[in-house]
Design a protein around this nucleic acid. Sequence first.
DNA 1: CTGAAAGCGCTTACAG
DNA 2: CTGAAAGCGCTTACAG
Lengths: 334, 334
Amino acid sequence: MKRVTMSDVANEANVSKSTVSQYINKRYDYMGEDTKTRIEQAIRQLGYQPNYVARSLKQKKTSTIGVIVANILHSFSTQLIRAIEDFCHEHDFHVIVCNADDDPVKEKKYIDMLRAKQVDGLIVVPTGRNITLYEQMVDETFPLVFVDRVVEGLPVHTLMLDNEKASSLAVEHLIASGYEDIGIITASIVNHLPPRVERINGYKQALLKHGIDVNQSYIKSAEPVYIQSSLKDMLSLSKPPKALVLANDLVLMETLAYIKEENLTIPDDLAIVGIDDVSFASLFNPALTTVAQPAFEMGKKAACILLQLISQSDETEQEYILRFEPTLKHRQST
Amino acid sequence: MKRVTMSDVANEANVSKSTVSQYINKRYDYMGEDTKTRIEQAIRQLGYQPNYVARSLKQKKTSTIGVIVANILHSFSTQLIRAIEDFCHEHDFHVIVCNADDDPVKEKKYIDMLRAKQVDGLIVVPTGRNITLYEQMVDETFPLVFVDRVVEGLPVHTLMLDNEKASSLAVEHLIASGYEDIGIITASIVNHLPPRVERINGYKQALLKHGIDVNQSYIKSAEPVYIQSSLKDMLSLSKPPKALVLANDLVLMETLAYIKEENLTIPDDLAIVGIDDVSFASLFNPALTTVAQPAFEMGKKAACILLQLISQSDETEQEYILRFEPTLKHRQST
DNA sequence: CTGAAAGCGCTTACAG
DNA sequence: CTGAAAGCGCTTACAG
């Protein structure tokens, strides 16, 4: 099974490879009608398919981008990827997806491999712990876009949710609904991931703005497995919070598991609002109040900026940091 | 910003390109110690990164596979992809992900483009409507694995859930719990997608096996937007079903939405069991009984078979169709 | 133990 | 309007 190449087509059609190449690339400007039809026939007859690897080598571009997320199993990542893929497909780009699992070693390995594969650009949810590597890419003006997390001081286009606003929306809604004892639970902040830190800040600011003191024992951050025990601690306080902001989908789900196990009633025993509009929010009993982030919009914009960077268009965004607006979905859990 | 190539390294180290290539590919057999160190230094000094595109062209393999799913937003696809990606990563392969959206035109475009990009193999959830194209790949012995859906009569390795068993598990569980009036709702079967048809068959067989007549008005298939009205029809029957098998996650969610809107009580007004173990199954009130399919296992196996096909290993599975076992997760909705 | 040469399948100035 | 030639950055027999 020998693959048919451009030479075979050229022979069959009695023209040179150059001419076939022109035809393939639709540069018909000076091409004779019969030449065209002869080539077309030869292509059809031989079932010729161009080899993009050869083309990429010559043109020094692959029309492929790499996307490195933390974990494709998170709905935010899935939506991001879908939006990126759709946008790229429209522009005849392909996307290679990788999961770095918040592991800087994996992240570096993927970045190196993708670049060795000559991807034209990279969209990454950065672990934040490969600074030298990021800087190197910046120095080489390699097309790069960060999503969800900033890396301080790096001139890289970065798309983020307005995280402070997300948690303040949640808190202000809770306050407006009459709550004052409001807690927040986030995923672990040992690596200082910006969204988590910012969500805590937004929470504090909203409380202060309404003259409510920040109570440190109402703020917990923990790995998924420890969420439930953190919750237990917080709810065992002599004066436990009456409402909780759950800073992402995973934390929300762990909390829901705990609430179910302990037979608590939402919102009477505990009001909750989650950040991330989980798929089942409106089906749940009671329906869950959430703060949604525009994951599709962010994915589309990330792809759009990256492709502009790749084509060195002048219309590229000026601003390095782009913040996206969260929206409150008021349902029945608050 | 000129990229440094193998020639540059060769010059710097005062050896030939061939020798650098040997070094890069770890063929040290006859290499002098000082040659090695000279090359190593040159590589480090110049920051040389090999160009895989050039290598791929020469070696006629890209260490990349394509994965075409219906829609990455479905949890089954996400889990499948994650498992494939993990397996491939372990074996130094990359994966390009595409969403065909059950559209044969998109499917064909993706397959053509991925092959033009010289992917070494393809894992696809086939739409079933590009028969000629599939046959062509089979003729060329192009490494190919199907997941989730068979295409009749094609000698292609195909991994599927034992769909009949999945729905009979659900039905038998319902019967054992004392139900007799059992309905089933599936996604649209206009395109005769095998899993949907098989799930209906399994449902019928389980009923017959237990001496219960099949009632055609207890069987509905519809597009997502029509699920709720189908449900309404079925539940408005003079003698409506008391229990429902929901044939996938989407149908389940539509049903849950309807149940919530109509203020029905699960399982008293209606018992339900869903196929696909949705993320929130155990959190829900009441916790949802489901039939789970081993998506990760299926993804891993698909990748494993594909890589065997690619390396033309003799250990490749003999059987073309591999069925995976569903498992019943008994919770509180039945 | 190492190098010169050919070639993978294209594209792209340039010549005619 | 079309073709000959060089070259993209590697790998791989083969020679020495």
